[in-house]
Design a protein around this nucleic acid. Structure first.
Lengths: 212, 212, 212, 212
DNA sequence: CATGAATGAGCTTTCATTCAT
DNA sequence: TATGAATGAAAGCTCATTCAT
């Protein structure tokens, strides 16, 4: 991305950007943008592509958003803040590390199912974005989310629920990568429901691949 | 990417493209290109960036490569064919599915360690590329590699080595995503050697996360 | 010309492209392009030349036309279809081969007078273009026009109006070359009107150069 | 053409440039260049095209010629000076204007047959070249040749051989255009010999198209 | 809100030419 | 003579963005 200007704090309402069915024009456009950004890549998507898909001219997009980057910003911010809120709540409500880990993983697969484009976008751009001015919050959200996972994993380890002989920093990364990467192949319309995928994963993750 | 023309299989010599230290000018340039493509993204990297890094003018690159796309092509083709060859050999020489799976995973982490840029490039572009004219081979290589993994996993399952109650299609994807995604955070210069990472992963994968 | 993509039949409105005074912006630009293409040659004319002449930036041209080639395409297509229509009508309305031949020649000189740039462009590029993908219609129009001429010449020959001892295929080429080539030296603003030139030519053509 | 530097007075020997079979390397290369210039156009022919055809690298051409333009220069100069010499001789040896006109026309068709590429090149570039610095001689040769034709035509008119009621300035252009334009369709390998074409043309030119 | 014309910067690519080897 | 690597200028084109209507 050739981001140079700060995107500013884009206004946004309750619109589930990156989701499927926005209520107003604004979220319709964001949804279209998210889909294209995720499918083709942010840099490879032109403002005109988005406008074409929306049935308007590219210049008209600027009545709704101040820049292409502002759209990306809004999509990511909506997604990340919702995700963080949900993860925070899971941690707060948790009584059992294992059950909480279950919930984090299920919540993650559900997020993929609900807003795949935002997830894919986050996946694809997170490394590049974290260093970009105006997108520092991406790194901040990521770090906060990482801490929640790690606290739970380490707590479970201390409680003797999770194995003591694994490096949780690495294990966290393994889990995170597996879960988020599935956005690339998981099809919500396919034969697997998000809970089924989560179950499969938890199955292998907890019990291991070997037959006992 | 706005790929329209077929890049052709412009490949010559034994240059380990995408690697670190090419012998001739050609592979030097490819190595620079791979690094930039992987770091900034293909679309975000300009041929001037590559030329600047190489200390020449952008036009001079066209003395060595017919297009920016041809560079991408050559990097990916070199990487994928080498990977496939290695995987093929592992399968052919395998006597035990579990040992073979070990080797596949170790080989994967080693590939990440050896040519991280090519791996990152492949990771980032594989979905978009597979449908692009001239890059069909990316999908073909990917499918062949997938088949090798699946044959081994299913064989291990039938032999009673791997658990019977997991869906191997999904499990393969989990493994693949975990392994390849680590390119994004794994640093060869860091404290972990590739074998150590592989060992950690195999540890969790085989034994599961739970304390027995 | 390095034509590679098909230009498509991007044509709109009744704009007399290649003519002198287009009504809207689009035909203004086409007229400028035709003038430059004819004067300097297509390859030697840059899109910046055209834009400069129009008082805009080169990139702005792409708001109106998809490519430099598309401009050439539109100029030629407009010119050729108008010419063919006129020739068709002359043949349909003809009662006497000699009068019809008169009309064809007068119409040709008038076309040169009305849209000299389009004629010059056609003259200069016809051979190279006919084999270029997307410009097959140039050859098709040319062949249709040739057939009209030949039918009239042969009809006149059979009717005993034109001499029997000349090869009409060659004679047609002689006539065509003479007429169209005059675009290179004929100046509409000069002392000769198109009808006067046509008359001179018909004079020599019919009566021969020798004094009786 | 983007001619900016004066081509200088390129050395040249007795090599029949633009012809078919040069004796030495220099005229071989000139012949290749003439063919490509005539077929694709001067601007559309790259130095690399010429070198490829000759089986060398483009840079190597500069051991033989100082520039691309110098090749064009040499081809045209050879062609024009030979043509002028022949025309001069025809005029000097002429006793009868009609016989001399015959000879001019036959000589022209023979030139087309002998060095079609040089003729086509001259045809295509004469207008653009005449105003280009370093190519003033093109206009000079052309004017001298025109004068020879005109003197013969007017002499014939005064002698009562050619009709008095035609404008010889225009008639000359008609004749010239017809003759030179035939280079575009005349194929030396075809069924017509150059003399046959000349005969056909003289037939119509002298006797007229009408049946008596 | 939307259009349509334009900007301006930057992109990939082409190509005649140079020059050390 | 020829190679091969490079230059430097310019080409066609893209695209985010602006703005009067």
């Amino acid at each position: 991305m050739a981001t140079r200007t700060r995107p500013g704090s884009a206004k946004r309402g309750a619109a589930s950007a990156g989701g499927g069915s926005g209520s107003d024009r604004r979220s319709q456009l964001l949804s279209i943008a998210a889909t294209l950004f995720a499918t083709r890549g942010y840099a490879e998507t032109t403002v005109r592509d988005i406008a074409d898909e929306a049935g308007i001219l590219s210049g008209s997009l600027y009545h709704h958003f101040s820049s292409k980057e502002a759209m990306l910003d809004e999509i990511l911010r909506d997604f990340l803040s919702a995700l963080r809120d949900r993860f925070r709540k899971i941690e707060q409500d948790s009584v059992d590390p294992r059950a909480a880990l279950d919930e984090l993983i299920v919540a993650s697969f559900e997020a993929i199912s609900a807003t795949p484009h935002a997830v894919a976008l986050y996946q694809a751009q997170v490394v590049a974005l974290a260093r970009q001015p105006g997108f520092e919050y991406v790194g901040e959200f990521s770090r906060e989310i990482e801490k929640i996972w790690l606290r739970l994993l380490v707590a479970g380890q201390k409680a003797g629920i999770f194995r003591a002989d694994v490096d949780m920093n690495i294990t966290y990364r393994f889990i995170r990568d597996t879960v988020w990467s599935s956005v690339r192949w998981y099809r919500p319309r396919g034969k697997y429901k998000p809970e089924a995928i989560a179950k499969q994963y938890l199955h292998v993750l907890y019990g291991g691949l070997l037959a006992s």
